[in-house]
Design a protein around this nucleic acid. Structure first.
Length: 879
RNA sequence: GGGCGAUUAGCUCAGUUGGUUAGAGCGUCUGGUUUACACCCAGAAGGUCAUUGGUUCGACUCCAAUAUCGCCCACCA
């Protein structure tokens, strides 16, 4: 016994244990196992630095599943990696360089040198991430680590781009995009955030009508008034043209009608600015109108539209335009309290200005995907895989949200005007275009843009296994069993993975069921602070750093606190005390094991004839717990699984069984329960359980070398002793009854019980019920003061042939109990009557499905049995 | 505007086919230091399960409405 003399200190064990695992090769899938392979692809953390609680949660959950499946004997692949995180990374590095005095790093360094700077930073970050992932105890296969921007994954990206282009799924076109003037890039719809803002809403006289607008600065080029076709106020104007006075002088404007107009809003008439509004652009396309650019890419008014506002930002121009129109007497009124949402880029929070630009898109409606014998669009495939349960989303309610999202899905803009990312594999030479991984030859120039980061991370589940090569690993490990991630990136990422995987793998000849990226999607909630607020970097006081917590409380405690008490899809609050609580549990396990090891003397087998009541009880409980933990883990109820074993180990094994063992012990049972418990706890708290296992090993108490590689426990039918459990629950009833008696009556319960302990012989509670005696003693029900306060002494006084009989009826409030039973019996009698009426009804028995009738019959039988039991009870009470 | 979720002990949360007396951890209070553990042990107090109505023999659980909080989507001239 070496380390076990000390209290458990997580920091002393974790690193060496992790190293032992890693060196043993256990993290790699073991193909000598014959069960079906199991795989989880770790959602790659951004290579921008720190691991946060979201990552920690993800790693804890995935690692629990991976360890569980590995112990069950599945060749298990848990594949780690990092994401190059295009915009996020570029802006971090940009900011660093700017802080170092560089104004525009890209211009000053040039594309290549700037990319080198980013690469350097990323390599650094990757090291940090790897270290932090290890700290969490993650049992992932480092020999297969991937990176979303490595050469092989770049090849995969180029390949799928080319395939999609050739299928007409990828096209180039002028569209309204969300342009972020601050970061000089486009932003996808999903990356938009809306900030509510109170601003002014202006009414201007525009020829014969009054128009309402919140953005006067875009109105320089407006020549079209749109009204609702049914609007009586404007019916006479529809289709007519007017000459009118406007910002820079007289212009001509035309009135058109479209049903998209809301008659209630403003004056029911508006002018359109196609180049700077999604809706206006769609209208312009519908009616074949021009869409001139008013605001340039810097977010400033173009000179050609206005001398007075040229070069002004939109904010400045707004003021100026209002002034001008006011001077001309065209300003009708201003609403001061107009509430509306402003779109901002969720990275960097720059206000987005819609612009018309040439971009690359993925067509989500074109029916070219080869799916289940039909040609389907991306949208249809996305719907099909979830509709047909090929992919299951947990919790299920997110399926609804998913479908709703698909219904509103527009073509996916995949080009980004940044340099850090997979470069678009398109080459231009004059008017010619070629899609190719490498330059087609002299004089060809590559597209300057890069791809949306989600376009490449969408390939994660299969590019990491070697696609586009048809590797053996791809064959074995797709689809992965579960994708575990936060619900906040369901659309960003999860849906994109389905698109990319189904398309690419079908193209490579895989059948539909092997083309999906994963079978289950497990969505965890966000981790919030104690007040329910989002933890954010801008408010460091709300942040809990998982690594700090690991340092203070150990990895096992951190993992437990992230998993227990959380349910999929629901946010969870985390606070330091909670982690501290689980640290206590870790310590409890250590000490419990220490006690057990001290009490073991050599090898011993469980012999049924030698089992005491408490031995039988603890073994049958162990069976129940084994079953419950296994079942809950299979069903992704990690919190429940963890709680089961937590309550059993602490509340029953330690507090009860180990106490009894101080009086009379069965080393074989002690050891067995410890061993099985360690296995059940291992996925949740790998370090402390492995540390104890090492001790058992060095004492030659277990055969298997490492707990991580041991077999998952199974229920042992020989240990089911149901009658004993029943008896235990009866004893608990007695204790409760005593308590009640004591509380409610002024009878001297202690004396009474003391007396009857010797008086009866129904319940033969012998030595192994010492704990009962102890409990009674603690309740003050036993007069043990003569032998001193030492429980041990008290126990030794009672150990022997003590027989206790506590007739229930003596101890209960008989009238209340009778009333309760009466009521219950009445209920059941009514129930029986309803049921039998139903079953004797011919139209029911003939028409209802067989199973339903059988179920009803079963209910009837159960109720009848219960009635019998209750009647018996009430009879006993009467006696 | 559309949708989703939450509402259970002082706090943080569990509680699925509806079924005896609704659970846990923390906190509070009482008693206990006995060589596994005070990061402990034995107890106690604390609940009209948000409100109202409905279905049912029986509702924390199912249905409807309301209230409060949170989130998502869309629109926002």
């Amino acid at each position: 016994m070496t380390d076990m003399n000390k209290a458990y200190s997580a920091g002393d064990h974790e690193d060496s244990i992790y190293q032992m695992w890693e060196e043993s090769g256990i993290f790699a899938p073991d193909f000598s196992k014959t069960k079906e392979p199991y795989s989880i692809m770790m959602p790659p953390p951004n290579a921008t630095g720190q691991l946060h609680l979201g990552h920690a949660t993800m790693l804890a959950i995935e690692d629990i599943l991976a360890r569980f499946k590995r112990m069950q004997g599945h060749p298990t692949l848990y594949l780690p990696g990092t994401d190059h995180a295009a915009i996020a990374t570029q802006s971090v590095v940009e900011k660093r360089l700017q802080d170092g005095g560089m104004k525009n790093p890209l211009e000053e360094l040039g594309r290549e040198a700037f990319l080198d700077k980013i690469k350097e930073f990323v390599e650094d970050s990757k090291k940090t991430i790897r270290m932090q992932v290890r700290k969490m105890g993650t049992s992932c296969d480092w020999s297969r680590e991937k990176y979303t921007f490595s050469d092989d994954l770049n090849h995969a990206v180029n390949t799928i781009f080319k395939m999609m282009y050739e299928d007409g799924l990828i096209y180039r076109g002028g569209r309204i995009v969300n342009w972020d003037p601050k970061m000089q890039t486009t932003v996808s719809d999903d990356e938009l955030e809306y900030v509510e803002e109170k601003s002014k809403f202006y009414y201007f006289q525009y020829g014969p009508v009054v128009i309402g607008t919140a953005r006067p600065e875009t109105k320089f080029g407006d020549k079209i008034i749109v009204v609702h076709p049914e609007d009586k106020r404007y019916k006479e104007f529809i289709g007519k043209e007017f000459e009118l006075e406007w910002i820079e002088g007289p212009i001509k404007a035309k009135v058109i009608a479209d049903e998209c107009i809301d008659m209630e809003l403003g004056t029911g008439a508006m002018t359109i600015t196609p180049a700077h509004s999604q809706v206006d652009f769609e209208l312009a396309q519908k009616y074949d109108l021009e869409s001139p650019q008013i605001i340039d890419l810097e977010g400033k008014i173009k000179a050609e539209w206005s001398k007075s506002c040229a070069g002004m930002t939109t904010k400045e121009a707004r003021k100026k335009v209002v002034e001008i129109l006011d001077e001309k007497g065209l300003l009708v009124k201003i609403d001061e309290d107009y509430l509306h949402n402003v779109s901002v880029n969720y990275r960097g929070k720059g206000v987005v200005e819609p612009q018309v630009m040439e971009q690359w898109f993925v067509d989500v409606n074109k029916q070219v995907m080869d799916w289940k014998g039909k040609k389907m669009s991306i949208k249809e495939v996305l719907q099909d895989v979830v509709n047909t349960k090929m992919i299951r989303i947990i919790p299920q309610r997110f399926e609804k949200i998913y479908f709703h999202w698909i219904d509103n899905l527009r073509d996916w803009c995949i080009s980004r005007q940044i340099v850090w990312g997979h470069r678009i594999p398109v080459w231009y030479k004059g008017d010619e275009i070629q899609v190719n991984e490498v330059s087609p030859g002299e004089g060809w120039k590559q597209d300057e843009d890069t791809l949306d980061t989600w376009f490449s991370s969408g390939l994660w589940t299969f590019s990491t296994l070697g696609w586009p090569e048809k590797t053996e690993e791809l064959e074995k490990f797709t689809p992965s069993n579960v994708l575990e991630t936060g619900y906040d990136i369901l659309f960003f990422w999860v849906a994109r993975m389905i698109i990319q995987s189904t398309y690419a793998l079908r193209k490579s000849g895989f059948p539909e069921e092997k083309s999906i990226p994963f079978k289950d999607v497990y969505l965890h909630g966000l981790i919030r602070d104690i007040h329910g607020k989002k933890m954010s970097k801008s408010r460091p006081e709300t942040c809990i750093d998982p690594l700090d917590m690991i340092k203070s409380y150990g990895t096992d405690a951190v993992r437990l606190s992230l998993v227990i008490g959380g349910t999929p899809g629901n946010d969870m609050r985390l606070y330091e005390e909670k982690i501290g609580g689980y640290r206590n549990f870790v310590n409890k396990i250590w000490n419990g094991a220490r006690f057990v090891i001290m009490n073991l003397d050599g090898e011993s087998e469980i012999v049924e004839s030698e089992l005491s009541r408490s031995d039988k009880w603890v073994l049958s409980r162990l069976n129940e717990i084994t079953e419950a933990v296994t079942k809950n883990l299979e069903e992704y109820k990690l919190s429940e699984a963890g709680l089961e074993i937590y309550n059993f180990f602490w509340g029953e094994y330690c507090d009860w069984y180990l106490e009894i063992s101080k009086v009379s012990k069965n080393p074989a049972v002690l050891k067995q329960v410890l061993k099985t418990s360690l296995k059940l706890m291992h996925p949740f708290m790998p370090f402390v359980t492995e540390a104890i296992w090492k001790e058992l090993q060095s004492e030659k108490l277990v055969d298997e070398k490492m707990l991580i590689a041991s077999d998952w426990p199974e229920v042992n039918p020989e240990w089911n002793f149901p009658s004993e459990s029943d008896e235990m629950s009866r004893i608990m009833d007695l204790i409760r009854a005593i308590r009640k008696l004591r509380a409610e009556s002024n009878v001297d319960a202690g004396k009474k019980i003391h007396a009857i302990i010797y008086a009866h012989e129904d319940l033969q509670l012998v030595s192994d019920k010492a704990d009962i005696i102890k409990r009674l003693a603690n309740l003050g029900e036993l007069e043990i003061s003569e032998t001193g306060d030492k429980v041990a002494k008290a126990l030794s006084g009672f150990v022997g042939d003590v027989e206790i009989y506590l007739p229930l009826a003596d101890l209960l409030d008989m009238d209340a109990e009778k009333a309760r039973l009466d009521k219950e019996i009445k209920n059941i009698e009514n129930y029986l009557e309803t049921l039998s009426r139903k079953l004797s009804n011919d139209s029911f028995t003939k028409n209802a499905p067989e199973q339903v009738v059988a179920a009803e019959q079963k209910k009837l039988d159960e109720a009848a049995a219960k009635l019998e039991k209750l009647s018996k009870q009430i009879q006993e009470l009467g006696e």
